[in-house]
Design a protein around this nucleic acid. Structure first.
Lengths: 341, 341
DNA sequence: GCGCGTTACTGAATCGTGTTAGCAAATCTG
DNA sequence: CAGATTTGCTAACACGATTCAGTAACGCGC
């Protein structure tokens, strides 16, 4: 109500030209060579009248919308924020919008979300998960360009963007090896997920490359919780030849590890070195000592997702369908030099 | 491209009726009394043909869109997620969408964000901040119903939804008082913000109501960081008559407090009781012992924002323009009984 | 003064839906 | 059985843009 809404026709009348001309000018169509004087006049009157384009009309007429859809499990994790942030920023730069729809990790819900987004005429779709895993992409998602972020489909049919877990695990172990540690423990996240497999694989490779061996007993299975970090650390430190450093599968595990270490009267970053994974913004930099960890590049993944989508929408050929994004180390204070170098 | 897009006209032709009839049936216009048989036939063919309504056309024709705009500082804080989550859920229920635009705490950016959202024909606007404070609402936000979440304008011109800081502070202090503590410390968040003022006010009231007094020295000014919690706690515990319980202005402060307490060889939840504020999902339940704290009702605020917006869009009278939402206590394990009851 | 190319525009169709006004047939009313 | 009402549907315009196909005016060479 009270929608006075100035239209192009109003601007055209006020400027004494046709709708078409106004459209050309406001969209910067230079090939319709409208002289500078007219352009200026039209822009002036548009501004004076407070003209605001109607996106719905534009979408309808041009059959191209300014929206991408993002389907994600906002319900569960704060991680989603960063993906949204990155995607949002990247889309915004090109004048695009993000329509966010919840999937809640329920296939039915997810299909509905996609359906609703398609009704909104989204030009492309991003499906993002909060933890790196394989998913089944809803059938209807195929009616429009679609990119997977932090997940992948079994057939590799969709382009996907995932963190480089292996390189991340490698970096984590290398930090400890470079600091002179030779007896390194590891507490894993939940068994069988890409994060666990990748990080552990990377760690083993790094240790080999640095000429270090690691007994099986130095790898304890956790489940990603702080509790599992606490108990895992107790288990490691109770061994006859306890490790001097622990690579924790994620930051929450590291949090539990801190507690266990302190309870034993030892000092994190002096007696025992710790490296985490994830770089949780409200955790890692606030721990005492501040946690050295490997960051999950959620924001970059979101940005990459949108730019990949842009390419697909424009019909550019996609060279790389499976993109991995590096996990940068965040060096803080939980790792100490050990022994002679 | 390859937009086969089945339209209403296609459905109409296939069903042997006019487009108008299809529109009536699909929109459930009962007053146009179409007999059950015809309705069924149209629904069938629509489903068979895979008809998907075009939201842009609908928005254009009906002059009412199915989406609300949410302007927020996604850039800075994980808190935003919960507001988005609540708003999203609430909107989704009514078939509405949320368009998210970043404000990045920059007035120019914010105006642009609002402008862009208005171009998208949003039916209403939510402006949300990550921390409770006063804001200046951009002028153009007035062209559509607008609700403030977690913030407010100086003139009270806009309906706003904020957490009940005072009641939260009251609850926090009461938990400690009820546990038998009589010597209670407090470490504040940044000076002068509503969170600091409200929580402190609530605390003082609770202590008065429980017949307790509190020396000025037992309130130390922090800045919301874990570091300030660490040093604040050291300061409090170094006093000649140290408190047996500390109400920390937020969970990060509590995190620092834990570290300081443990370093002194004391036990949290046994020797010293702690209550936090915010209930940060990835922090509070994972601390050791698990932190008793007061939750900030972000999700509820988001939901309340959307439903208030719905009322406004429908033209219902708004009875309450300044809504405060309660901050529920989350009782965990960081508070112990003290002394005789 | 004719043909041709450029410049600076305009008219009209189109996008897919909502919505009002109205019409023919069927049914009811008295 | 005439007139009024209801039932079941349709024609046509509107919404606010984009875009294609012109076209009138002008300059220019010959």
């Amino acid at each position: 109500m009270t929608q006075q809404s100035v239209t192009m026709a109003d601007v055209a009348k006020a400027a004494g030209v046709s709708r078409t001309t106004v459209s050309f000018v406001l969209n910067g169509r230079m090939e319709a060579n409208i002289p500078e004087a007219t352009r200026e006049r039209i822009n002036q009157t548009a501004r004076m009248l407070g003209y605001r384009p109607n996106a719905a009309a534009r979408t309808l007429a041009s059959k191209r919308s300014a929206w991408f859809g993002l389907v994600t499990e906002i319900a569960t994790s704060p991680f989603a924020t960063d993906v949204i942030k990155g995607a949002q920023r990247s889309a915004w730069k090109d004048g695009n919008f993000l329509l966010i729809a919840p999937s809640d990790d329920d296939p039915g819900m997810e299909m509905l979300a996609v359906e609703k987004l398609l009704e909104q005429q989204v030009g492309g779709l991003i499906i993002a998960t909060t933890w790196h895993r394989e998913i089944i992409v809803p059938e209807n998602a195929k009616s429009v360009p679609c990119v997977l972020v932090n997940c992948f489909d079994a057939e590799g049919e969709f382009p996907s963007i995932v963190p480089d877990e292996v390189a991340g695990g490698y970096a984590a172990a290398e930090i400890l090896a470079r600091a002179g540690h030779t007896n390194i423990g590891h507490i894993t996240v939940a068994q069988g997920i890409p994060a666990q497999i990748g990080r552990q694989t990377g760690m083993k490779q790094a240790l080999r490359d640095h000429g270090l061996s690691q007994e099986e007993s130095k790898i304890v299975a956790g489940d990603g919780t702080a509790d599992s970090g606490y108990h895992g650390t107790q288990e490691l430190l109770a061994q006859p030849d306890p490790p001097t450093a622990i690579f924790c599968g994620n930051d929450r595990i590291a949090m539990g590890a801190y507690d266990a270490i302190k309870e034993l009267g030892l000092r994190v970053g002096e007696d025992i070195s710790i490296v985490g994974f994830d770089d949780q913004e409200i955790l890692a930099p606030h721990m005492r000592p501040k946690l050295t960890t490997i960051a999950l590049p959620f924001e970059e993944m979101g940005m990459a997702g949108v730019s990949l989508l842009n390419q697909m929408v424009e019909g550019s050929p996609i060279e790389n369908r499976q993109i991995t994004i590096g996990c940068p180390p965040r060096i803080r204070s939980s790792v100490a030099m050990h022994g002679q170098r």
